[in-house]
């Protein structure tokens, strides 16, 4: 994933493994059934999009868990940063007036 504060841990490379070039990582989203949206179910490795789709079907829908699959290269996903999440999401925290419960409803007012 791309982010301003990515932290991939240093690990010693194991020599001889695919010449150091990895098979790309994909994130998988499945729509369980009509009416629901696609939900993230996990990830997998595949060399290209068509193979990623087939692998996703084989790994994540063996028991009819889905009617539609999206696969997205993990490198294409931009994620908000956990370290910056306070500054990023704080503005919403003090705006209770966005919620219907902020507003008292006088007795006897119908349909409000």
């Amino acid at each position: 994933m791309n982010s301003g504060t990515g932290s991939s841990a240093g690990q010693e490379p194991v020599t001889g493994e695919d010449g150091g070039v990895g098979v790309p990582l994909w994130e998988v989203f499945v729509r369980p059934r009509r009416g629901l949206s696609h939900a993230h179910v996990g990830s997998l490795h595949a060399p290209d999009a068509a193979t990623a789709l087939r692998h996703a079907r084989d790994v994540y829908t063996r028991r009819q868990e889905g009617v539609s699959i999206w696969v997205v290269p993990a490198a294409q996903i931009t994620a908000s940063s956990p370290e910056e999440k306070d500054a990023f999401f704080d503005p919403a925290a003090d705006k209770a007036y966005r919620h219907p419960t902020f507003y008292p409803v006088p007795d006897g007012v119908p349909h409000l």
Binding site: S7, G42, L44
Partner: peptide, 30 residues
């Protein structure tokens, strides 16, 4: 089907491990 499931379980778990900042290649090498 059972053996296929075991392969799938391995894949779910490798995926979970990779979220901690290791590559599949590294884990297979280990």
């Amino acid at each position: 089907a059972k053996v296929q499931d075991e392969a799938g379980h391995g894949l779910y778990l490798y995926g979970a491990a990779e979220t901690l900042g290791v590559t599949r290649e590294h884990l297979v090498g280990l």
